[in-house]
């Protein structure tokens, strides 16, 4: 029986639940969990003042309910276990995740999966800016694991990511893979400008129907179907992300760059504009 956390808070300031993870709660009684200190703005509150707590955390499974759009840092730093969130969530969901799985059945705010190190963050709705990105001033973003966004994502998806896989089922904003060190970002919808800007290594797949305008610092290499792309696409499909099945057969135009950086990155584009 999972631990159920039903949000009934009514506040216009941010609520932060950093540290409330299955790893912490698995050996705690419901009363102890209710006393867990969360922040409402800069004030500490016991969890029970804003969440109704029921069930048990012994099986390391959390169920979150309610309009959590103003609740931030859900699942941040989690190492094991499972979380299911029914409703929208705020910023920093799954930030620094190291293991386990977080399923968001709703939209997520900025910095979803920022600096994620392992495990799975699956957002079944859309995500805002900076998915899997590095925090300002940090040298690296995501370093492992997988972030899946069934809907759209905002700007700077995978900024400075070092390893791991991000897949966006819908469209993405500007600067996909900005400052990317390595890793993989796949965008199955259209994307904004300056994809891969300053990327060193890694792979950005831009599979939208509209072919994006690339920076002039990317050089065309060839048209081919790298076998490893099959592995990536099948992995994403196995997790339930929907995309145009023709991608499983198509060849891609490969561009290498960004020449203003190391230049070992690659952009994969659909060979021709496709009708959707």
């Amino acid at each position: 029986m999972p631990l159920k956390l039903s949000y009934f808070g009514d506040t216009s300031v941010p609520v932060e639940v950093e540290g409330l993870t299955p790893d912490w709660a698995c050996d705690k009684s419901p009363a102890e969990i209710e006393r867990f200190e969360i922040f409402e703005g800069n004030r500490k509150r016991p969890l029970a003042e804003m969440f109704r707590v029921s069930g048990s955390a012994t099986d390391r499974c959390f169920e979150w309910e309610g309009n959590l759009a103003g609740v931030h840092w859900i699942g941040a730093g989690m190492q094991t276990g499972e979380m299911h969130v029914h409703g929208p969530v705020g910023r920093h969901v799954g930030s620094g995740l190291r293991g386990g799985a977080i399923q968001i059945h709703g939209d997520a705010g900025d910095w979803a999966g920022a600096e994620l190190h392992g495990g799975l963050l699956h957002i079944h709705g859309s995500a805002a800016q900076m998915v899997g990105a590095a925090y300002r001033g940090a040298p690296k973003g995501m370093t492992g694991g997988m972030i899946l966004v069934d809907g759209d994502a905002g700007d700077e998806v995978g900024a400075a990511m070092r390893r791991g896989l991000i897949a966006v089922g819908g469209s993405a904003g500007d600067l996909v893979g900005f400052n990317m060190i390595a890793g993989t970002v796949l965008v199955f919808g259209d994307c904004g400008i300056r994809a891969g800007a300053n990327m060193r290594r890694g792979t950005v797949g831009l599979f939208g129907a509209a072919r994006p305008t690339l920076l002039p610092t990317f050089r065309f290499a060839t048209t081919i179907r790298p076998h490893v792309v099959n592995v990536l696409l099948r992995t994403v499909a196995a997790q339930g992300v929907k995309f145009d099945q023709r991608l499983l057969e198509e060849e891609f135009d490969i561009y290498h760059g960004d020449a203003v950086s190391v230049g070992r990155g690659e952009l994969l584009l659909r060979q021709v504009e496709v009708a959707v």
């Binding site: 896989l165 993989t184 290594r201 592995v231």
Partner: peptide, 8 residues
């Protein structure tokens, strides 16, 4: 010129 891709 080899590259690697780590998945999981």
């Amino acid at each position: 010129f080899q590259r690697s891709k780590k998945l999981g």
